[in-house]
Simulated scan of single mutants.
Amino acid sequence: MTKLVGIWDGVPHDTTRPSVTVVVPALNEARNLPHVAARMPVDVDELVFVDGGSVDGTADVARALWPAAKHLRQTRRGKGNALACGFAAATGDIVVMLDADGSTDPQEIPRYVAALTSGADFAKGSRFIQGGGSSDITRFRRVGNAALNKLVNVLFGTKYTDLCYGYNAFWRRHVIEMRLPDVETQTPQWGDGFEIETLVNVRVAASGLKIAEVCSFESSRIHGVSNLNAVSDGLRVLRTIKQEYAYARASERRVAPPVTVDFNVSASPISDSLMSQAEATA
């Protein structure tokens, strides 16, 4: 039986604790939600569940598992729009982005909260630093992620080790720096799809926020088939990188390298030669 953990286990009771909201976007994940719920920390302050128009009873299962949660229907299609809707509804001091397919472990949430309460503005999950890993990523996706990751580090002067991973957390006051599309607009917007992770990662770096990478293990989804398409979504990520770089150059905004907060969370530096390329390009 899974032992339920608390976000604040081991923290003195008289410590001032920020409130934590977990945002869970889902599309046809009814069979996976019980597993996610069973591993959710017992002291999450708020859960925002965003349904993408599921046809398998996902919304009903979510209401049964989390009756006190905020239950929303996203306004357009795509993971990016679902997350934007969730962020708009969140009221916690800290917001955690969590997938509904069982691939991201809710019991890792305390790591992300620890990063933020130790001084980071944005806690970015990484499968490729010590303590992280994946049983889901294919060799093709791993190579593609590495190439896109290197490109972002060169163009933006960042030190990311895992660009295309969506398990992240941040102080809610920084959502403004993400410049997400208006959730009330009915017309599809850039940022509505799987490019959302890259868009957020680049924009928080461009804003000079303190970023800490947190080790995370990605499991294989439990049931169903992923909505991710490695080729088409990879091209969307590439287009996102090009557009954000063009915007940064046009705006004469210089991207500050993320600061890794030292609290025993590993970070892998890029090579000296790659750093030289980044400095020359920036």
Score class of each variant (00 low, 15 high):
218 E>P: 04
234 G>V: 01
11 V>N: 09
230 A>N: 07
45 D>I: 00
210 K>V: 12
4 L>N: 09
203 R>L: 14
198 T>A: 15
169 A>P: 05
48 V>H: 03
179 R>A: 14
40 M>V: 08
32 N>D: 15
70 K>V: 15
86 G>H: 06
280 A>R: 10
87 F>L: 13
191 G>D: 05
56 D>W: 01
188 P>D: 02
93 D>Y: 04
14 D>M: 09
272 D>Y: 06
94 I>H: 08
282 A>F: 06
130 Q>H: 10
235 L>M: 12
93 D>T: 07
82 A>V: 00
278 A>V: 00
264 N>S: 15
139 R>N: 15
251 S>Q: 14
16 T>G: 09
141 R>Y: 10
102 G>A: 04
124 K>P: 00
220 S>D: 10
233 D>Y: 02
142 R>I: 12
233 D>Q: 02
3 K>S: 15
171 W>T: 02
169 A>H: 05
74 Q>H: 05
213 E>M: 09
46 E>A: 03
65 L>P: 09
157 G>D: 01
107 Q>T: 15
257 P>N: 12
42 V>K: 10
43 D>P: 02
125 G>I: 01
239 R>L: 14
2 T>V: 14
192 D>Q: 02
232 S>L: 11
238 L>T: 08
55 V>L: 06
221 R>N: 11
39 R>V: 00
229 N>W: 07
34 P>A: 14
206 A>D: 12
15 T>S: 11
193 G>Y: 07
77 R>G: 12
264 N>C: 12
75 T>I: 03
195 E>W: 05
14 D>N: 14
235 L>T: 10
162 D>G: 01
40 M>A: 05
142 R>L: 14
129 I>K: 01
278 A>I: 00
144 G>L: 08
282 A>E: 06
212 A>T: 15
173 R>H: 12
134 S>W: 03
4 L>A: 14
57 G>H: 00
161 T>I: 04
81 N>R: 12
171 W>V: 00
173 R>E: 15
198 T>Q: 08
240 T>Y: 03
236 R>S: 15
233 D>N: 13
214 V>F: 07
194 F>T: 10
92 G>Y: 03
209 L>E: 04
63 R>V: 06
178 M>G: 03
182 D>C: 04
185 T>S: 13
106 P>T: 00
86 G>N: 04
212 A>P: 00
240 T>E: 13
152 V>Q: 06
80 G>V: 01
189 Q>L: 06
231 V>N: 06
194 F>D: 05
254 R>T: 15
183 V>C: 01
203 R>I: 09
49 F>G: 01
177 E>P: 02
17 R>W: 06
95 V>D: 11
253 R>G: 13
177 E>N: 12
160 Y>M: 12
102 G>T: 06
259 V>Q: 14
7 I>A: 08
126 S>L: 02
22 V>M: 05
84 A>T: 07
276 S>C: 07
224 G>T: 00
145 N>Q: 14
150 K>P: 02
64 A>G: 11
192 D>S: 04
260 T>P: 13
127 R>C: 08
171 W>S: 03
223 H>F: 13
150 K>L: 11
128 F>P: 02
148 L>W: 02
175 V>K: 09
215 C>R: 06
272 D>V: 07
